[in-house]
Design a binder for these strands. Structure first.
Lengths: 208, 208
DNA sequence: AAATTTATGTGATAAACTTAACAATATTGA
DNA sequence: TCAATATTGTTAAGTTTATCACATAAATTT
């Protein structure tokens, strides 16, 4: 019933509704949402329906109520603890990124093999890779961000698989497949850029 | 004819084929590709067909030939120059990321308003935001990566729109819509993580 | 209070994307 | 050389996802 894009759309609804809330709005109609997100209003209503979000005919939806419901759906009652594997430039940037906190996500540790990066007193601490398995078990970590060099990506996934972690957000260029026990979502920044370059060049060609 | 996912798939084919090439393979069959990427072999053949990549019945496809064709499709004959707008932690990490070069992408400059980040002698240089428009025009830049704080994202897009740039890879949490002149692709890392958390938690619920 | 308006909720329809199926054909081996 | 086999190329079928369209219900107006 719930398809892949639906959760990402729900997150977009959430962002928009929070914005409308700060502007003082209390209610919203499906086509207010659909207009700004450039989708159809029926898709908004269908998404809401699928997630049990109901409105009033003629009256629209109450923003507070939708936002509460979305947080329920996303399980925002408890803080989600996440670790970063590989504290290179990108890993470090993500560790220190301030945007996670307000969505209830906390980066609780980073891990690396390079002694010069290790700092057990840091906030969050950076520990040696040796400690990954114990840390994940002791702290009941379900999700990690993987920002290791391409060369060690496969090895790292094997290591993580053995820990019983549930999800990896993989920033390495190696594409991994999910299994029933371990969901791996791949973000390939180079591909995103190549894709954009293709689209832009093609548009330009069409104009000429 | 060519749909959104097709180019991203093509990039995955490319990665896989380059890997097979380094292992010494000369030829490949559609189901070799489809097995590792977990799609159907007919989709591989359809993609190839759409892009004018042909094989031999019974003989499969020649890896060298496919890779050459893919580079043609992607316009890899010339280096793509890209600039980074906003040299915070993530912007800086992307500026120094080594993975772009081998795909023919070169980060030629970064831009920021913070004087402490500016370094015109750097490699690549970091210049003041004042110089964005001139730089883009003089260097014929078509693509940029936007890694500015959320607060100034809208303003930055307006500024970039005025320069006539063709594409923005947007890492801010604000979602922007493309227009005919300007393609904006959004990467929302927080959403990617929230989505993963949702999937993992749901899987766990289903098991219990 | 009846008529009118306006938005939801949802079943039917359409569009987009993927897979299945198989004819066409190149290669191999007897 | 000819049958057997294996793989492409492509059309048809299937699946998934999004939109359309309208009946239903709440609110407003007359």
């Amino acid at each position: 019933m719930t398809n892949k894009g639906q959760i990402l759309r729900l997150l977009n609804y959430k962002n928009l509704l929070k914005h409308l809330q700060t502007l003082g709005f209390k209610k919203v109609f499906s086509d207010n949402i659909s207009d700004t997100l450039e989708i159809s209003s029926s898709l908004v209503r269908k998404d809401f329906g699928n997630f049990g979000i109901t409105g009033n005919r003629k009256g629209g939806y109450e923003i507070d109520s939708i936002l509460g419901k979305i947080d329920d759906i996303l399980g925002k009652d408890e803080i989600q603890k996440v670790v970063v594997i590989g504290v290179g430039r990108i890993g470090e940037a993500l560790m220190k990124y301030q945007g996670f906190m307000k969505e209830g996500i906390q980066i609780v540790a980073g891990f690396d093999i390079d002694p010069s990066r290790i700092n057990a007193e840091g906030n969050p601490p950076v520990l040696h890779n040796d400690k990954i398995a114990d840390f994940i078990e002791e702290n009941d970590i379900k999700i990690c961000i993987m920002t290791v060099p391409q060369m060690v990506a496969k090895h790292t996934v094997d290591l993580l698989t053995a820990t019983g972690i549930g999800g990896i957000l993989n920033f390495t260029p190696i594409k991994f497949q999910s299994s029933a026990e371990l969901t791996i979502n791949n973000i390939n920044i180079v591909h995103e850029l190549e894709n954009l370059i293709y689209v832009v060049n093609k548009q330009k060609d069409n104009k000429e």
